[in-house]
Design a protein around this nucleic acid. Sequence first.
DNA 1: ACAAAAGTGTTTGGAGTACACCCATGA
DNA 2: TCATGGGTGTACTCCAAACACTTTTGT
Lengths: 233, 233
Amino acid sequence: MTTENLYNPHISVDCVVFGFDGENLKVLLIERSIDEQNELYNDKKLPGSVIFYEEDLDDAASRVLNELTGLKNIYLSQFRSFGSPNRTANPRDILWLERTTQLKIGRIVTVAYVALIKIDRKLVFNAEDTSASWYNVNEIAGMQLAFDHNQIIADGLQHIRHRLDLEPHLLFELLPRKFTISQLRSLYDVIHQTKSDVRNFQKKVAQMPYLVMLDELEEGVPHRAARLYKYKK
Amino acid sequence: MTTENLYNPHISVDCVVFGFDGENLKVLLIERSIDEQNELYNDKKLPGSVIFYEEDLDDAASRVLNELTGLKNIYLSQFRSFGSPNRTANPRDILWLERTTQLKIGRIVTVAYVALIKIDRKLVFNAEDTSASWYNVNEIAGMQLAFDHNQIIADGLQHIRHRLDLEPHLLFELLPRKFTISQLRSLYDVIHQTKSDVRNFQKKVAQMPYLVMLDELEEGVPHRAARLYKYKK
DNA sequence: ACAAAAGTGTTTGGAGTACACCCATGA
DNA sequence: TCATGGGTGTACTCCAAACACTTTTGT
C-alpha cells in the first residue's frame, strides 16, 4: 500500500511528552535505527509524524500520542513551529524519513507540542516496532537527538515552565490521581527550580480550592504515612 | 515570470503588527480586492506571504515586514501556527491566493508572528499596490477578515499581552523614542486592561533602571509640559 | 482666572519568607 | 529506640493599593 495520497510531506508535528517520576521531570523519546551501508546507527527522537492531508494540526498531535500511549484526552499545547531549511541538513534524517514515510521528502516544517501525562499510567509503549522510554530532562542535553529535537525539547521545557506557572492546576496532569503534598511540592520545585519551605508550601496549598483532602493515607512507606489528596474540577 | 520554483505553496507566515497611537492599541491590516464575476469584493487581511523554498520562517516574516514598511530590526516573535484544513474553506480566499501567487494552492499552514512597531515612524505603506492602515484592536472583532485572520489577531493579542507582562522593556518598542510617563502609563494600561494610579505608577517607573530622564519637555500642549524620557539599553 | 494635566508621600493590608519542634510509623 | 519524613504557627519584610493637593502652562 502506498501512502502517497494520505500524507502531506511538508508538515509534521512533534510532541515533547513530559512526565514526573516523583523526583525528576522526564521526556519520552523513541528509539530510532537506521541502517547505513549495512551499519546500524541508533539514536533517539521525539514522537511525531507528518500530517495527513485534511488533518488538523491538533488532531495530528493527538493521533501521535494515541498511537504511542493508547491514551486520549492528554493535555496538549502547541508551542512553536520549527522551519529552518537546515533542520533536515543531516542526510541520515532525510534517509530515515523517506524510508518510514515512503515519500520523497524535501523540507519539512514541524509544529511542536508539549504534552503532560501521568507517568504511573500503564502505557502501551513498544507497541508495533517503536520502543519509547523516559529520560531525565537534564540528561537529554548531553544526547545527540535526531533533527533539531534537542532544540525543540529545550524550547518545550521553557514553555511548559511558563505555562505551569501561569496555570498551576496543570501540575495535576503530571501527578497520580491521588498524591501527597510532598509529591506536589517536589514537582513544584522541579518546575520552578526552587527548594520551597515545607510550612510555607502547606500554607500556599491550603488556599487552593481545587485541592481536596482524602480520608486516606499513603501505604508502604517506612515512616509516618502522609495524607493523600486529589485534584477536583 | 513564473514563481513556481521560488515559492513553497504549503506554508505561509502572517504578521500581527501592533502599534500604539497614544490611546489605543492598533493592528496593521491590508486592503484586499477580489474581482468575482465582475463584482469587486473588498476586505482586509493581515500582512503575510507564502515562504520561499529554502527560506527560514523568521526570515520570511522579516521580509514581509520589510516589504510593507521599509523597516528592519522590528521586534518579531512567532506565537502560533494555524493549520486547520478549513481555514481555506472560503473559495474567495483560494481564488485570491492563486491569483496573487500564480500557484496552485491547496491547503496552507500559516505560522503567525506578532510584531511591535513605533507608529510614529514614517512607513512606506501604499508602496506597490498594497495599501495598509491601522485599526483599533477593538473594532477588528466586528470586521470580517480574510481566512482565519480574526482568530489569529485575537490569539496574537493575547500572546503579546502575556509577553509584555513578562518582558516590560518591550513596551518601548511601541513608544516613540522620546516619551512622557503619561504615555507609558497609558500604554501600560491598554496592555494590562487596567487603570493605574498616577502616583503608584511613578513609583514603579522610578525603579526601572533602563528609563532615563531627559532634560527636555513636551512641546505644544495646552497645559503644563511633561518631562520626556527615553529607554536605554 | 480658569482649565487641564503634571508632579509628588504616606498609610495600610496582604503575600511571601524565614525559621524549629513534636508526631507517627516501620525497622 | 532510632531513623525518616509528616505536620504545624509566628514574626518580619516588602510590594501593591488607596488616597488629595499644589504646580505649571496656555487660553
